Simulated assay, not measured.
Amino acid sequence: MLDLIRLLRPRATLFGAGFDAFGEWGLSFRKRDDLLFCRIERGECQLVRPGYATRHIKKGDFVLIRTSTPFTLTSNGSVEPVDSETAVSVSKRNKLRLGSGEGRPVTLHAGKFVVETANEALLTGLLPQLIHIAADGPSLGRIRSLLAMNEMEAREPGPASEFIILRLVELILVEIMRSHHLQESRENKGLLAGLSDKITERALAAMHRDVARNWTVADLAELSGVSRSKFATRFRKVVGTGPIEYLLQWRMALAKNELQAGIKSVSEIAFAIGFQSSSAFSSAFTREVGCPPSQLRHPNRVGPT
């Protein structure tokens, strides 16, 4: 998990000061493959996604959503929504106002998580498309404590409040990723699901601990205490890819991170992640990533490749 967080380095950005809505209103979000979050400070609304059941979100709720499909926040599903990007671009206020009148007020704060560009694809398979943490739902102690701190800071802002709120939201994401309750979501495949599975967890931990080792499916199956065929089937079902394919993807993720850091040479990176030559690494990297390692190297790097 720590390896993953170090590669992603998630950072939160807020969408201005949030928005206030009254009466009948709707705000739509386009398909962007971003990871957005929102917290309801007061009132309630609906979250509508094509092909999914409508979600009712209330005061104190926190929602984490990937915009792999468009979605709408609305007072009810029959209202024609305003496009969020258009509304923000034409508004001259830091805090958006929607609807009309003063009835049924809703205040909502939203933003998105930004991760290191080189490995942002890792995030796609980590979390379900939607995570809804209800204010009155089953306990997720640390997350709820962070949300309470976030709400207090928003209600009683002081010096550096925006900085504090952003760091709290980032910690909320990390806690969501750590939560076994969410890792076991049937909607999820990937590393987090694999780390919560009794069969695949040992194999994943071993590959991350010794990424340079020449692992075989038989080695990993023995570590996991099951037959080779059972292990391979289970790994693909839970993680979403074969074990050796996963190992290669993880090696490439580590390599992209090192290349952008610009500290190690290509040959040093190659040997550190299990390749016997820089040429073999370069060929594999180009095949998997779509460009040679030199294209991702930090521009200030000086030294041999």
Rank of each mutant, 00 (worst) to 15 (best):
G60P: 05
K58C: 10
R6H: 14
E44D: 07
F15M: 13
L47Y: 01
D61A: 08
A21Q: 07
G16W: 09
T67H: 01
A53I: 04
R9F: 06
D3F: 08
P70C: 12
D20A: 08
W25L: 11
G26Y: 06
A53D: 11
T74C: 13
T13S: 15
G23D: 02
F29Y: 13
R55Y: 03
Y52T: 13
E80F: 13
Q46D: 05
D33W: 09
V79E: 09
I40T: 15
R9N: 12
F37M: 05
R39F: 08
G43R: 04
I5Q: 02
D33H: 13
G18T: 04
F29V: 03
Q46E: 13
P10S: 04
D33V: 04
T67S: 13
A12Q: 01
F15H: 15
G23C: 08
R39A: 05
L64A: 03
A12Y: 01
G26L: 13
F37H: 10
R66Q: 13
K59L: 15
V48R: 08
A21D: 04
V48M: 10
S78Y: 06
R49E: 07
L64E: 05
L8N: 11
G77Y: 05
C45P: 01
F71C: 05
V48I: 15
S68H: 09
F22N: 06
L4S: 08
S78I: 08
G18D: 11
T67I: 07
L4N: 07
T67M: 03
S28T: 14
R55S: 11
R55C: 04
V63Q: 01
Y52W: 15
K59C: 14
P70K: 04
P50S: 09
F37W: 15
G16P: 05
D20H: 12
T13D: 14
I5E: 03
C38S: 09
R9I: 00
R30T: 07
G18I: 04
T67F: 01
A12F: 08
F37E: 03
F15C: 15
S75L: 02
H56F: 04
F15T: 14
F22G: 02
F37A: 02
L73C: 03
F29P: 01
F29W: 14
P81I: 15
E44H: 02
L4V: 13
L47D: 00
L8C: 11
A12D: 03
K31N: 07
S28V: 14
F29C: 07
A21H: 02
R49W: 01
L8I: 05
V63M: 07
A17V: 12
H56T: 10
V48S: 05
P50L: 05
F37R: 01
R11Y: 02
A53K: 09
